[in-house]
């Protein structure tokens, strides 16, 4: 049997490493913020939050349900959803990569990542 001090150290170490990792995720971001909305792993929308000048809302509908998403300069949130748990709605605004919004019942993920909108490679 280990001493209690040993276990305190282990738990403190796990906490420290996790905090460090969270800080690294945030600091390693190259700046800029592009929100990527995926449903079932497919990107449905990519929004450069830095390029948003005026707030607007739109609805993502899929076979599992619908989420109304609100965009404002630099931030994004789920305004309304017909999912049972409403976790995505209650999470509120996000603006960085640390806490993505997940609506598990609808398989919808909103993740903000650094960088700017890649734009397009060619126009047709």
């Amino acid at each position: 049997m280990r001493s209690t001090r040993f276990w305190v150290l282990i738990v403190a170490a796990v906490l420290a490493v996790s905090l460090l990792a969270a800080a690294v995720v945030r600091l390693a971001s190259p700046g800029g913020s592009v929100a990527e909305i995926t449903v079932d792993g497919q990107v449905v929308e990519r929004i450069d939050l830095d390029r948003v000048t005026e707030g607007y809302t739109f609805t993502v509908e899929d076979e599992w349900g619908s989420n109304t998403i609100q965009v404002e300069p630099g931030r994004i949130r789920v305004l309304e959803a017909d999912c049972p748990d409403q976790v995505c709605v209650r999470q509120g605004w996000i603006s960085d990569e640390v806490t993505p919004i997940v609506c598990l019942p609808h398989r919808l993920v909103i993740q903000v990542s650094g960088g700017t909108d890649a734009g397009v490679d060619a126009l047709s």
Binding site: V120, D121, A122, L123, S124
Partner: peptide
């Protein structure tokens, strides 16, 4: 891009698909 006719060979050098705007 031949005046709006976009034709792609393979994918981008990092393996991701080309993004063509309409």
């Amino acid at each position: 891009n031949l005046g709006g006719n976009v034709q792609a060979l393979g994918s981008q050098s990092d393996g991701s698909p080309w993004r063509v705007g309409i």
